[in-house]
Simulated assay, not measured.
Amino acid sequence: MAIGMSDWTLRLHGVGNASAVALGSAMATIEQGGRPWLTIDCGAEGLTAYQAAYGESPRALFVTHAHLDHVGGFERLFVDTYFDAARRGRVVVYVPAPLVPLVHQRVAAYPNVLAEGGANFWDAFRLVPVGDAFWHDGVRLEVFPVRHHWPDTAFGLRLRGSMVWTGDTRPIPEMLARYADADELIAHDCGLHGNPSHTGVEDLEREYPPGILSRCLLYHYASVADGEALAARGHRVGRPGEVVALAAPTAARAQPWNG
Results as ranks from 00 to 15, higher is better:
175 M>A: 15
128 V>D: 13
193 H>F: 14
192 L>K: 01
134 F>G: 10
121 F>C: 11
153 T>R: 14
197 S>L: 08
152 D>N: 11
167 G>W: 00
188 H>G: 02
156 G>L: 08
149 H>L: 14
120 N>H: 14
190 C>E: 01
144 F>G: 04
165 W>E: 04
179 Y>G: 07
190 C>F: 03
169 T>F: 07
127 L>Y: 10
116 E>C: 10
166 T>S: 14
147 R>W: 03
167 G>E: 01
169 T>N: 08
174 E>R: 12
138 G>M: 12
178 R>D: 14
191 G>I: 06
143 V>I: 13
168 D>P: 00
180 A>P: 11
155 F>H: 05
172 I>M: 09
181 D>K: 13
163 M>T: 06
123 D>N: 12
196 P>A: 01
148 H>Y: 15
170 R>H: 06
164 V>N: 09
157 L>K: 06
167 G>N: 02
185 L>K: 01
124 A>R: 08
202 E>K: 00
160 R>A: 14
148 H>C: 13
180 A>L: 06
115 A>F: 14
173 P>Q: 09
202 E>F: 04
177 A>D: 15
190 C>I: 03
140 R>P: 00
178 R>N: 07
185 L>Q: 02
136 H>F: 10
165 W>R: 00
124 A>Y: 09
187 A>L: 14
176 L>K: 03
124 A>K: 09
171 P>I: 08
179 Y>L: 09
161 G>P: 07
136 H>S: 13
187 A>G: 03
185 L>S: 04
176 L>P: 04
198 H>V: 05
161 G>D: 07
127 L>R: 15
149 H>N: 08
192 L>D: 06
157 L>Y: 08
158 R>Y: 06
202 E>V: 00
151 P>Q: 02
144 F>C: 08
203 D>Q: 04
168 D>V: 03
125 F>W: 12
150 W>R: 13
127 L>M: 15
162 S>G: 07
194 G>M: 03
125 F>D: 09
130 V>I: 15
155 F>Y: 15
142 E>T: 13
169 T>L: 07
155 F>K: 02
154 A>D: 03
197 S>I: 06
181 D>N: 15
136 H>A: 12
173 P>V: 07
157 L>R: 05
182 A>H: 14
145 P>H: 05
191 G>Y: 01
197 S>G: 03
118 G>Q: 12
159 L>M: 12
125 F>C: 10
193 H>D: 13
183 D>W: 01
194 G>W: 01
186 I>R: 03
129 P>L: 10
137 D>H: 11
186 I>M: 02
136 H>M: 10
129 P>Q: 11
143 V>F: 05
147 R>F: 04
147 R>D: 15
146 V>L: 06
159 L>N: 05
179 Y>T: 04
139 V>C: 10
184 E>Y: 06
165 W>D: 03
143 V>D: 07
197 S>Y: 05
156 G>V: 03
116 E>I: 13
182 A>I: 02
142 E>N: 11
127 L>N: 06
156 G>S: 07
150 W>D: 04
121 F>V: 11
173 P>W: 10
155 F>I: 00
123 D>E: 14
167 G>K: 01
160 R>Q: 12
173 P>K: 07
125 F>V: 11
122 W>S: 12
184 E>S: 08
158 R>Q: 15
161 G>R: 04
159 L>A: 06
